[in-house]
Amino acid sequence: MIDSLRRFFAGDLWWSFRSSPIVVLAAMTTVSMVFASVFANFVAPYDIFDLTQFNLMDGLKPPFWMERGEIGFLLGTDDQGRDVLSTILYGSRVSLTVGFFSVIFAMLIGIFVGLVAGYSGGWIDAVLMRIADVQLSFPAILIALLVDGIISGLLPDQAQGELAIYVLIAAISLSFWVQYARTVRSSTMVERTKEYVQAAQVIGLPKPLILFRHILPNVMGPVLVIATIQLALAIITEATLSFLGVGVPPTSPSLGTLIRVGNDYLFSGEWWITVFPGLALVILVLAVNILGDWLRDALNPKLR
């Protein structure tokens, strides 16, 4: 473990990381935003789920540096008297949770399908790839809208508020798996013909073992790159769905929901309700995108 860490810090990847200040900044931003939202309970000044902490009469206070602003509400309050900074922290938690888990699930589905299709070939491959083609021809946002509609339709009304996050995760991961599947499949088809796989087949190792122990580690590089970029996309997709009103409810808001609610106040002068969550969203996505971009270039030996 220590050995591999040492090798990592001595390696090209670490060097290319350190030599680009923007990437370092992006990494720091991402890490601190993830940290702040994971520990929102401790970091945020208020618990937005505890309604007794808020007073309606505190509503619509501007950020602290403006007239009427209060130091207790650094970035102001929203229409319900909730502290905007706290809603952003809790909101990023929802956005990141949805983004993170939908990428993980999409990755799991995609890797599995890709490995199976690439290794088996034949009609299994044909069927799986046809499905992938069909899905790839539809924009993710439309698929996510559809899946979201179907799942929330199947759930009883009552459960929708609590389960909204899981519905979103399912919808986004089901619309994102194809890219992984395609990438893994093509790498697998290459790996399959290599000697080490043939050797494993000859000594009679079971198929799953070959797939997951031997081939998988060799196709993970591109998968990780896609995952980073898709994390950013997933966060945007979640925000868009929530903005269109099919995402999470305002009582347990994500960044997209906050922007949608705040949009009502854009013309009335209470810009902070929508601008701060909007900024948080853009900064988060931008930081993740910069990381993904860098990772892709760094892992692509041709561009070095």
Partner: peptide, 17 residues
């Protein structure tokens, strides 16, 4: 490139608003 990254990071609805 930085601009294009920002472009990708801006959700469509935010740009419109």
């Amino acid at each position: 490139m930085t601009l294009s990254l920002i472009g990708i990071s801006l959700p469509t609805f935010l740009i419109g608003i």
